[in-house]
Design a protein around this nucleic acid. Structure first.
Lengths: 236, 236
DNA sequence: TTGCTAATAATGTATAGACATAATTGATCG
DNA sequence: CGATCAATTATGTCTATACATTATTAGCAA
C-alpha cells in the first residue's frame, strides 16, 4: 500500500500502543532513533509524533522524551463512563453491590456475545450501583477475557468493574444505544421502582482496535439520572 | 501573547470561519498568499492549514485550493441531529408538522433563554416529527435570531427546522442532556401515547464559538426510538 | 463540437539545517 | 549536605528548497 512515510511511522507506533506492546507510561524511542530506523529526516518523524500527540495518544516533553499517554477519561466524549466518579462529584456516597459473577463460553445463539468474545471466554458480571444507598443503576456486563485476562483474577467486591476497566484498558471505539423503556419486573425490583416506570436504558460496546472489550447494559432510574454528552472542538 | 506562528495563523483562520466571515464553501487564500501576509515559509502556513483540515474545519484540494468545510453532519458524534435523514434512511416517510411559531424577546426569568439570546430576539418553534404518519417526536425549539438572522424569513412548513439549521449553520459545540421521563398530558396527546408512557427526552444546546445558536427539547416515543452514539478514532 | 493531451497551479511530502525552549543531570561552590 | 548554575539532551519552531501528485484549464486535433 502506498502511504506517506510520516503516516506509516504514525501507524506503526499507534499499532504498538493499541496492541499493548507499548504500555501507558512507556517511553518511546527518541526522534533521532526513529530517524535512524526509518532513514528519514527529523521533520518527518516529528510530524508523525505530532499527530499522535494531537489525538492524545502520546505526551511529549522537552528534554524527557515522548511517552505513551495514560488512558484518557473520555476526552470530550460522553459523560456516561465513570458512574462512580460522577456520583462522588455530586457529593453522594457511592456503592456497588455485586449480584452475580460467572465465567462462561459465549452463547453463539446470541449475536452480541459471539461478536464480543469470538472463541474466548466471557466474564459475566451483574450488579447495582447505589448513590447515597439508593439504587441508581442496574448493570449487566460482559467482558471478553481474551482482551482483558487480568479481569478474571480481580476481586469485584465493592468497586465498580466499569471504573476498573476505564483505568486499566484504553479503548479506541465505543458505541452507545440509548433508549427509554418501562421497567420490567427484574429491573423494578433491583431499582426499587414500580413496574412500568420510565427507565433510561444504555447499551454500550467498546473496542480496542478490532477486539471487543466489553458489552454493558444499564438501566437507570429515570427520575434520578440524566446523561450529559458534550461535544466540541473546545480547547480546554 | 506568545504563540507559535503556525498557531496564530490557525487561530486567525479559525476565528474567521467561526465568526461567519468566511462562509462554508468559501475559498480561502492560497498558501503563497498567506506566506506573503505572514511573511513566513510555506511549511508554516501548511502546518496551520493541516491542523484545520484534521479537525474538519476546512477541505484542501490539490490544484483547487482550500475551502471552508460545509457543516459536518456529526462527523462521529451523536446520531441525534438529523432526524429527517434518519427516518428516510430507515425507509420511512418523513413529515414535520408545525404547531407554533413566534418571535419574542427572551424571558429573563428563564435561565436558558437569556443565556441563549442575550438581548437579541428569539424564534420559538414547536412541532411534531412523523415517521410513516405516526408521531415520533414532539419538539420545542428556541433559535437565537442574532446568531441566525436568516431564520426569521424562512418558511417552516413541511421541512424540519433542525435539518435546515444543520445544513446552514456550523456548530462548534453541543451539549446534550438525555433522560427518560414519563409522558405528561401535552406530550402524550401529541405523541399519541398514554400518559405516563416512557419517553426519551433530549435537551440539546449548540454554540458557534461563544454564541448560542439553538436550544431544543425533544420527547421521543420510547418504544419507537433509540439514540445511537458512536465514538472513536476510527479513520474512515 | 468532441476528445485527447499538455501546461499549469495548487496542495502534499520530504530533506537538511538552524536556532529556540525546556527540563534533567551533573558539577561546582558555599 | 544542599543550593545554584551550567552543560546536555530532547522536543518545538521555522526556513528554504525540491520534487511529487492531482485537478483544472487551455490548446489542439479529429
Amino acid at each position: 500500500m502506498r502511504m506517506p512515510l510520516h503516516e506509516r511511522i504514525r501507524r506503526d507506533i499507534e499499532a504498538a500502543i493499541l496492541s499493548g506492546e507499548l504500555k501507558p507510561g512507556a517511553r518511546l524511542p527518541v526522534e533521532h532513533e526513529l530517524m535512524r530506523q526509518y532513514a528519514c529526516a527529523r521533520m518527518t518523524v516529528s510530524k508523525a509524533l505530532s499527530a499522535l500527540s494531537s489525538v492524545g495518544l502520546i505526551d511529549r516533553r522537552k528534554r524527557a522524551g515522548s511517552f505513551v499517554a495514560r488512558p484518557k477519561v473520555h476526552s470530550m466524549v460522553l459523560d456516561i463512563p465513570d458512574l462512580e466518579q460522577e456520583i462522588l462529584q455530586r457529593g453522594q456516597i457511592y456503592r456497588y453491590r455485586l449480584l452475580r459473577r460467572q465465567v462462561r463460553l459465549p452463547d453463539h445463539s446470541t449475536a452480541g456475545e459471539a461478536a464480543l468474545a469470538g472463541r474466548g471466554q466471557l466474564l459475566l458480571i451483574e450488579g447495582v450501583h447505589f448513590a447515597d444507598e439508593r439504587p441508581l443503576s442496574f448493570e449487566t456486563r460482559l467482558v471478553s477475557l481474551s482482551a482483558v485476562p487480568e479481569m478474571e483474577a480481580l476481586s469485584l467486591e465493592g468497586a465498580s468493574p466499569g471504573a476498573w476497566l476505564l483505568k486499566h484498558v484504553p479503548w479506541t471505539e465505543a458505541e452507545n444505544r440509548i433508549a427509554a423503556v418501562p421497567a420490567d419486573q427484574t429491573v423494578a425490583r433491583h431499582l426499587n421502582v414500580g413496574t412500568g416506570a420510565a427507565c433510561l436504558f444504555v447499551e454500550r460496546r467498546t473496542w480496542r482496535g478490532n477486539d471487543g472489550i466489553t458489552l454493558v447494559r444499564q438501566h437507570f432510574v429515570g427520575s434520578a439520572y440524566d446523561l450529559i454528552a458534550r461535544f466540541g472542538s473546545s480547547k480546554l
